[in-house]
Write a protein that binds this DNA or RNA. Sequence first.
RNA 1: GGGCGAUUAGCUCAGCUGGCUAGAGCAAUUCGUUUACACCGAAUAGGUCAUAGGUUCAAGUCCUAUAUCGCCCACCA
Length: 725
Amino acid sequence: MKDLSKAYESNIEKEIYRKWEETGLFNPDNMDKYLKENGYSVKKPFTITLPPPNANGNLHLGHMCGYSFHDAIGRYMRMTGHPTLLLPGKDHAGIQTETAFTKKLESEGTSKWDLGREEFYKQCYEFCITNASNAREQEKNIGLSADYSREFFTLDPRLTKIVYETFYKMYEDGLAYRDKRIINQCPYCKTALADIDTEHEERRGIFAYIRYPFVDEDGYITVATTRPETMLGDTAVAVNPNDERYKEYIGKKLMLPIANREIPIIADEEVDMEKGTGAVKVTPAHSPVDFDLGQKHELEVINVIDEEGKMTGEIPERFIGLETVECSKKLCAELDELGLLEKIENIKHEVAVCERCRTAIEPIISNQWYVDVSGLAQRSLEELKKDNVSVIPEGQQRALEHFYENIQPWCISRQLWWGQRIPVWYKGGKKKYDEDGGEIYLGENAPDDSGEWEAETDMFDTWFSSGQWPFSTLGGPDGEDFKKYYPTQMMIHARDILFWWSSRMIMMGLYRTNEVPFSKIFLTGMILAPDGSKMSKSKGNGVEPQYIFDKYGADALRLWYYSDALPGSNAPLREEKIKGNRNFVNKIWNASRFIIMNIDESEISSITDHSVDENLDRIKQTKEHISNVSKYLDKFQFNLGAEAIREFFWHTLCDVWIEEIKNEIQDKDIGSDIRIERLSELLYILKENLKIMHPFIPFITEAVWQELVKLELAKGTLMEQQIII
RNA sequence: GGGCGAUUAGCUCAGCUGGCUAGAGCAAUUCGUUUACACCGAAUAGGUCAUAGGUUCAAGUCCUAUAUCGCCCACCA
């Protein structure tokens, strides 16, 4: 009776999404009302704050994957009676966006310096807003049932206010402080980085053996170093006190070549006798290990490298301004001439690099803002141990515990133009404050307009604000939404940001709200390129989500994620697999089409009035199936759920039941009572299947539901139907 | 250097607290259907579950080594 196209056309997805939006039910307040009005039992609200994608580019398949899981859980929760809030947002992503936007400017022939700080900020803001709205459309493409009336950008003044409150409180509690210590400086991004913002990479390097002559006697000690240029900042040579080779020299003085400074020979157990020559040069200003050693032995700290990775300070004139690599070469040449260069070995070694631009990190001494997170890490650890928050898969939980156990002070200031300015004012200037101390004021605006106050120009580490995401988006600890929807239930993201993000959210959540912000962290698998390597722009092996949407539709992509992107595993993109899921989606369409086509218009009222006998075998099996899938969803076993719905719909309903019933109802001699009975049964089974499949594949199931609505065989939208288990 | 995970059909992987005569999808082979669907159906073939020990009535599933691969953490000169 009804003419439906032979194949499901996924281009109707946009229209379906619009239909959902019109119901207003992505807003949990409305959902709550809806449930009450329809006599459904209203269960506890269910909240997930969605990871805000960086507003500096398009979303990739990894984002889509995460949102597929968010959405499946969200829809399932709604359909089981929970007013559900999926709270979306977009992240300003400090350093990442600044790098991306700076590159964009460069490609347009201009630069951030040309624009100036204020104009840069303004244009970057616009850049982000444009990206954010693109991202929002992409989120809708995957079917994300988020409440966009509550969407936030991380630089929203309402959020900034809460972020600032946290900072003020931390300052008052003595947790936030300014300190001078060795930091990771990225010479390209020209900012300090936290340890976690660095990665380690194997690079080619040299290992130079340099002779440091004794001051008071003939002879020398040979030290080995990968960074000869730092010798200009050496303030000691350290040996192991048990090292027979050097024992007698401890306390004596060496003449540092080129710099011509006297430095002592000190003893420390830390020194490895096996490494190099067993004697190690100590440069407190430019090596984290040496910095600690320097503090321990109260050594002088001599800065010889500046923020841009160039030679500086009290060193021979000819080296000033050189890049470290050039300086190293020049020094080696000079040492060789002096007969002080024993040899140079070419080696490969692990080097710390900037997570963003892969530039080798320059450890330098600098004044920065820190947060002492030791206490909060301890609390977080306890919550993990008490199981108030847990990580799926479990293996990663131990990694998180390890992170908390070994946590260091968190450097939260970044020398960027993009982000949230640290709300601090220094009386008489920042430089003066760092050198001699003095008065400091915390607030967005200067305490008075005397002109004595210099504004801090550093920005917060972006994770300082995103670490507060679960409560800042709910209006902070005093917000209306906070009371209703906090703590949230889950956090879902890829495992690469576990330490950056979830670890901080737990700590800051505990700090501001005394509660863990969520009780479960679900780590999705990583989507890899077809060849199993990481997808990256530079390699050009990425696959655009839009390509998949256009070719196979969102549902096919989603179903593939549920099956393959399991927690803790990697999922190489296999187009054949997505295609297989597209075929399944089409199968649903056609089975539904078959049922619809076989219902005569005159039979509709009889069918809808007909009650289905619960004792029928097929009905019993259907109910059992639904309960199984629910159990999988309750345990977040998406792969098993996806497999179950595919298996049941395709190989039981289509291949067996429809075939059985087909023969019966297409028999001209069958009585109309039997026809009605069979068709009612089929329709019931179809509808129940659509419901349980809806969290996984919302578009096709809704598309079919709407066809049923047109025939008055169903009402409303599928997303507001209840799964009764 | 430490931690975690993987190793199951040609390929990509499921297999939860031990009961499997080891599964799925894709690929392959053979048939079928063309008024729900070729984005279809029926069937076939294909694995001593990395290796070696151990626990058990019973091990892909637990334990211990070994090997290969991957990821994460780490301040080493």
